[in-house]
Design a protein around this nucleic acid. Structure first.
Lengths: 324, 324
DNA sequence: CTGAAAGCGCTAACAC
DNA sequence: GTGTTAGCGCTTTCAG
């Protein structure tokens, strides 16, 4: 792998001049020509490692998400990517798999590779961002708040979404509205179920709410299992609020398997049902602006990378419910 | 950010000793203890950039895929990740977006960050891997062959899949079987449609095959548009082979919109229909072992990184069709 | 077993 | 406008 010195030698100039033409600093056209020719001949690729070491920063940002197989997060990733590319940054995607250990490892990599910044959807409420903070690296939390750390964040109003979902179901005439939500140490899971609880406490049939609440993983199987469980209760619910897209699919599978087709059984889901061949009918979906979350997070990050030092901001995006 | 020198000073040893402790080389227990204590106190994180510059290689591999929003590729990514993590490597995911320009940029980054290797699903037949090859970096192509470059590859038998798909449809009694495939410069798209053509030429009703073939992008909208077009033909088909999962969903949308429910209209799709709430009935799916493709590719890459220099291998995974 | 010192390839003062 | 040179932080001979 050719170095700047070899290029310099071939072009008959100093390494500094080569560096200058590679970086677009002013150099006389003749020399620039020679350098470019030499670089081409040697198939020269600048060594980013060396450059990063010297400059103490790179042009790549890390995006750490908890589930790369969830279309919500890939869509968010597209948003981040598009925005970052527009500013000349590349983004590398890291899958924490809802695991704080893996998350910590990726944070470590981002840090020690001197990446320009990181955007992350924390794997848990206890995610440790202190390494990022203490080294003053630009960070923004997305989808889930940065529990206990004072950094930029962009989320949606999950509690309001929970309220809207439950309200929609009660308005449709259902009486026993259950709730399937995510892990109890994940913010979105808590808030969404809290929204549901608030409404259910007021409008429910007075039965024990905790019996109608299920915490599970944010996956298809989790939703299916929880739904199956709820259906086999002595007094089963007649409707359910499901806290994410994947679990929504699982719940729907369980319902259909039991011969219950919405709106025969009430169903409200957070996030769009991905890749549905037909517009889901009889299902209330709380639309989550995934891509926009990504774009916004990237925008905030770019500002921080640019040197913005104002106090941490939290931006809350609107999520419209769309009953269908 | 603390350096090895500061740790050394605090521990009263040389930088070399600190380095040794951090890397697990033999050091007396007393010194090792002192070093670890100092490192902890200073919240020391080794600088990977410097290490990589010095060692000329890193412990991260790049995975470049053409569409991060396609569950087939995210599933493949999980396979790569799991296998790589098992060997102590981290993987960063790059989305080429079916764009050779972006792809080239990511290859460049992988190269100039001295990543240990790269696995990529080429954006096109003309993808330029020469930079990787000439620098002798470990590379393996996955899902799509490495057109014209002699490197390891892992694929499925796409032509056979096309044959199986078309055959299944004719066997079901359909007479005019059309085909919706991907971009004409993408290998999988070509091979899958070739498989179809071979069968259709033999068993079709003798009408012009090219009129029944559509090339489009590998996306939902592409599939939907192409299906709509086919349906509006003077002599529309009565069945269709669709070359990927996303287009399959689009095609299904168009069919349902037209009031045509499989198996009323024949449908065979490559790749599992993701996140389907119910097992698709009346649809033939050619199962693609996405995760396994990833695992296998990562395994080959790990071998190459380990120094294996045998001639380039191509491994072809089995893809079973499952009519349902 | 430990330390000194020479770079890895690049950039950025600082001279000229 | 261009060249010289001193590092960025780490690993790794090479001595001791």
């Amino acid at each position: 792998m050719a170095t700047i010195y070899e290029v310099a030698a071939l072009a008959g100039v100093s390494p500094a001049t080569v560096s200058r033409v590679m970086n677009g600093t002013k150099v006389s056209p003749e020399l620039a020509g020679l350098v470019r020719k030499a670089a081409r001949e040697l198939d020269f690729t600048p060594n980013r490692t060396a450059r990063t070491l010297r400059r103490q920063n790179s042009e790549v940002i890390a995006l750490i998400i908890p589930d790369i197989e969830n279309p919500f997060f890939t869509s968010l990733a597209r948003g981040v990517e598009d925005r970052a590319q527009a500013s000349g940054y590349s983004v590398v995607l890291c899958n924490s798999d809802e695991d704080m250990g893996k998350e910590a490892r990726y944070i470590d990599i981002a840090l020690s590779e001197h990446m320009a910044g990181v955007i992350l959807a924390p794997a848990s409420d206890h995610s440790d961002l202190s390494a990022l903070i203490s080294r003053k690296r630009p960070v923004v939390a997305v989808d889930r708040g940065p529990h206990g750390f004072s950094i930029d964040a962009v989320t949606v109003d999950n509690r309001a979404g929970g309220v809207a979902a439950a309200t929609a179901l009660f308005d449709q005439g259902f009486l026993r509205v259950a709730c399937i939500t995510g892990p109890s140490d994940v913010e979105t899971a808590q808030l969404r179920s809290e929204g549901w609880r608030e409404v259910a406490a007021r409008r429910g049939d007075g039965s024990d709410l905790e019996a109608l609440l299920r915490h599970t993983n944010y996956r298809v199987e989790g939703g299916r299992a929880a739904m199956t469980e709820l259906l086999s209760l002595p007094e089963p619910p007649d409707a359910v609020v499901v806290a994410n897209n994947l679990m929504g699919i699982g719940a729907l599978q369980a319902l259909l398997a039991a011969g219950l087709t919405p709106p025969q059984f009430g169903l409200a889901v957070f996030g769009d049902l991905p890749f549905s061949p037909l517009a889901p009918s009889g299902i209330t979906v709380i639309h989550l602006p995934a891509r926009q979350l990504g774009v916004t997070a990237a925008t905030l990050l770019m500002e921080r990378i640019g040197g913005d030092t104002q106090p941490a901001r939290t931006v809350v995006l609107r999520n419209e419910s769309a009953a269908t």
